[in-house]
């Protein structure tokens, strides 16, 4: 294998591989495309880019894959399982998915967080020897009024060590200039900030956390016991799913003392998250009463906050809401 000229390292198939862990709506798809354009068209590499496929809606987990090579062709078109670099766009994903799965030793992790590399290390359980980059992409996104992908592209570009920021910006401009010329400059600025406003740390090689091997997704149920015809007999079993990772940052908080138990939140909620049951209301009367929000299923659309006729429901930034509120399970 000839030593690569641009890529700092490659795997046995001569590829440098990136995986982005995100949720639908943050723009990981477009980020993948722009980074691939920069590397392939701007810097003369070969490669490919795609996202996990499916009928993913907004808020559901998505993975973006980029593969770069200096060879004439890319043969491998399966998902990236052992990335050199993992970019985590949305930290709550770590609650529901092994986001660092398959990460290569001495690899790189880029995280959207306002925490320090040491703090995030313990949250994500990042193994020793890994280079960690932290970028407060949420802050930059809010300040520059762009999508999360812009600062994340900046951080990823820096973290790869080989992507040329000027090329990436060139393709950011190409992408937006025609349809949305007004967003070109804010995106470039957010990109620059993501590129610069980074905290980097190379973690010492220790045994604090283990590398997690890659496991292809396997349904727990196979051909020997699956009911014939694809029928699902466990009615309502989707209830066990944890959808909290779908929230893009906002959350409704319920204040019992303000609640008049009118039931309006129940009729607007797409996720059937407000929980009602028999009880005694604020006037001491028996009837159906609101008992709280099922945060496992709330996706944070805030329709309930909008409809609530009193101040019993308020929209808050999830990161600022106390853990004990989030972990309350209404009965």
């Amino acid at each position: 294998m000839a030593k690569p000229k641009i890529l700092p390292k490659v795997n046995e198939y001569d590829c440098y591989e990136i995986r982005m862990e995100s949720i639908g709506g943050l723009g990981a798809n477009v980020a993948g495309k722009i980074l691939a354009q920069a590397g392939i068209l701007g810097q003369g590499l070969n490669g490919l880019n795609f996202s996990s496929y499916g009928s993913e809606k907004q808020g559901t987990p998505v993975k973006g894959f980029i593969r770069f090579t200096e060879k004439e062709s890319v043969r491998i078109n399966s998902p990236v399982t052992q990335p050199h670099l993992i970019a985590v766009f949305h930290i709550s994903l770590a609650n529901v998915l092994p986001v660092l799965e398959g990460l290569k030793p001495e690899g790189t992790v880029v995280v959207n967080t306002n925490k320090t590399p040491d703090e995030i290390r313990d949250i994500l359980k990042i193994p020793g020897g890994i280079t960690v980059y932290c970028v407060d992409a949420i802050k930059i996104t809010v300040e520059e009024k762009v999508r999360m992908n812009a600062p994340m592209m900046g951080a990823i570009t820096k973290a790869t060590g080989f992507l040329d920021p000027e090329q990436v910006k060139k393709y950011i401009r190409e992408t937006f200039k025609k349809k949305y010329p007004q967003v070109v400059e804010p995106n470039c600025k957010a990109f620059d900030r993501g590129y610069k406003e980074l905290q980097m740390k190379v973690l010492a090689k220790d045994d604090k956390y283990d590398f997690i091997e890659y496991h292809p997704f396997m349904s727990p149920i196979g051909y020997d016991t699956a009911p014939m015809g694809g029928v699902i007999t466990d009615f309502g079993n989707a209830f066990i799913k944890d959808l909290s990772g779908s929230r893009a940052g906002y959350i409704p908080v319920w204040h019992e003392e303000e609640c008049i138990h009118c039931g309006q939140c129940d009729i607007v909620c797409p996720d059937y998250a407000p929980v009602f049951g028999e009880g005694t209301d604020h006037k001491g009367k028996q009837g159906m009463v609101m008992r709280g929000i099922d945060y496992k299923h709330c996706k944070g659309c805030l329709k309930c906050v909008e409809i609530c006729p009193t101040d019993a429901l308020t929209g808050e930034i999830e990161a600022e809401v106390a853990e004990e509120i989030l972990s309350t399970v209404p009965k």
Binding site: K57, G236, L243, R247, D266, P270, A273, F276
Partner: peptide, 24 residues
């Protein structure tokens, strides 16, 4: 509206629609 919160839900929480989807 309030009394009808008692109706058992034939579709339970746990679906994957977008936040704010009107179907449900």
């Amino acid at each position: 509206m309030r009394a009808l919160t008692k109706m058992p839900k034939r579709i339970v929480p746990g679906h994957g629609a977008c936040p704010g989807c009107g179907i449900f």
